[in-house]
Design a protein around this nucleic acid. Structure first.
Length: 471
DNA sequence: TCTGGGGTCCTAGGACCC
DNA sequence: TCTGGGGTCCTAGGACCC
């Protein structure tokens, strides 16, 4: 028995689109290889952690033939003896690793985040041919939500076809267009609302030959309620799954039929959202979705070894300087600084995480002082440190210099000029063109991380190569 | 498990005010 | 009088996603 009268719910024509194994597909396309049949993995170098890095993306063939999964360690990947030998020699000589294992017919390549971002832009540019930009919502680097309610009848006028047939045809048109123009295979979840489209994509389209699937209100009981395990449902992770199980909720069907007052009581408004989603209800309107204008910026890293307090202070300053420089790049000032310090696993304490309010600033000198004061206040004085996280939040975007009572305005202006000069030099010549002498010591990590985007190698040749390919 | 990194949202509880 | 009550803001921590 349905818990909702679906005839009262608004029917929207929503597509949730993602690119199959996006990073891996980018690397196939640029090499002129087929994204579906080529065995390829994108491997983060992660020189500061375990040897061999971490699999960021694997092509469908690599998953199928070698059982590669997305968080697998590089050292667990299959490798022919011949390739292993070449790899060892290259490592010893500190040369760039070979990427192709010709015995296994297997590519392993480093990530190029900047190139992927450019490809994502091109994909979204094509979507604009199918719906108006306000009805598009980029959800992540490889997923976009499209509301085609207003354009469906423009592409498929008349009433010979049902609404559902028209949707499927339009989704197919998009798939073909993307493939012809850019070489990517995209998966489309089609739904009466955003959650149904998302669930259709995650739970059916990804496994279909057509790479399309359509879920409507009529399918809720047969399809949504049948999703299992619980963690296959969007927004239920391992922790929530355990909590639900403890309450006797073992399936989405159970969740959809649970007493929603109790869910509300126990989980607040999130509980109500789970209840609605489990019943296939989602009243989100894509064009009303505000673009969350990023309200925080952070950098985290697991350090290459355990650090003592003195060594750590260098890392701290380095990383605070890098993160605040990203804040300046946005033309923003931050009113909150947050520091996370994780102790080594051998320690009995976990570490700490504290934030501090500040007068809005983007001055390196000021935020370094703030970070140091947090550290000095909360560090236990003896634990080895293995993890650092720095984040800034509560941005403001005015240009005026905030004067506070305790600093000399002339120094503030001087600091600001210095920061801006450093940023400009780096913008022109790259991060490594200018850095504090201390970074050269053994303990600095900023040089190694200089070229990364989102913690992964940014790559330098992506744009030129793709431009050549298009010529 | 010899630890990936960058984000967002929500909540409980404390401080403080009227 | 044994414990007023309502509201806002802030912080630490939990949870999730890609």
């Amino acid at each position: 028995m349905a818990n909702f009268d679906y005839s009262k719910e608004k029917i929207q024509d929503i597509f949730m689109i993602d690119v199959k194994s996006f990073y891996a597909s980018c690397e196939c396309v640029i090499r002129g290889l087929d994204p579906l049949t080529t065995r390829l993995v994108v491997l983060s170098r992660a020189e500061n952690t375990s040897r061999g890095g971490l699999v960021l993306a694997a092509s469908p063939a690599a998953k199928k033939d070698f059982g590669v999964t997305n968080v697998m360690r590089g050292r667990d990947l299959p490798m022919s003896p011949k390739f292993r030998k070449e790899l060892t020699i290259a490592e010893a000589k500190k040369e760039i690793l070979p990427v192709y294992d010709d015995v296994l017919n297997f590519y392993r390549v480093p990530p190029r985040m900047r190139y992927y971002i450019e490809e994502n832009k091109k994909i979204n540019y094509i979507f604009k041919d199918f719906t108006s930009p306000i009805d598009m919502h980029p959800y992540s680097i490889d997923e976009t939500i499209l509301d085609v309610s207003a354009s469906l009848n423009y592409f498929y006028p008349g009433d010979k076809l049902t609404r559902y047939q028209k949707r499927d045809l339009l989704a197919r048109d998009i798939q073909i267009e993307i493939y012809n123009k850019l070489g990517f295979y995209v998966t489309v979840g089609i739904g009466d609302n955003v959650i149904l489209a998302k669930l259709a994509m995650d739970n059916e389209a990804k496994h279909n030959r057509t790479m399309r699937a359509q879920w409507t209100y009529a399918d809720v009981e047969a399809k949504v309620w049948a999703i299992k395990p619980l963690t296959d449902f969007w927004s239920i992770g391992s922790r929530m799954s355990k909590r639900f199980e403890a309450m006797g909720i073992l399936s989405i069907r159970d969740l959809a039929n649970y007493d929603f007052h109790k869910l509300h009581q126990k989980f607040g408004i999130v509980g109500l959202e789970y209840y609605h989603h489990a019943n296939g209800i989602d009243r989100t309107v894509v064009s009303h979705k505000y673009q969350p204008k990023s309200n925080s910026l952070s950098n985290n890293q697991v350090l290459p070894k355990d650090y003592n307090a003195k060594e750590f202070m260098l890392i701290l300053r380095e990383q605070v300087a890098q993160t605040i420089s990203r804040v300046r790049k946005r033309g923003a000032k931050a009113a909150v600084i947050h520091l996370y310090v994780g102790y080594a696993m051998s320690e009995s304490e976990k570490g700490f995480s504290r934030q501090l309010k500040m007068a809005p600033t983007n001055s390196t000198a000021i935020v370094i002082k703030a970070a140091e004061s947090i550290f000095n206040k909360f560090y236990n004085g003896h634990s080895k440190i293995r993890h650092i996280g720095v984040s800034f939040g509560h941005f403001t975007f005015n240009d005026e210099l905030q004067l506070d009572l305790f600093s000399d305005p002339r120094n503030q202006i001087k600091d600001e000029k210095l920061d801006r000069a450093v940023d400009e030099i780096r913008l022109k010549y790259g991060f490594t063109s200018i850095f504090k002498a201390a970074s050269l010591s053994d303990y600095g990590t900023s040089l190694n991380r200089a070229n990364s985007v989102g913690g992964h190698a940014g790559g330098t040749d992506g744009l030129e190569v793709i431009q050549k390919r298009l010529e």
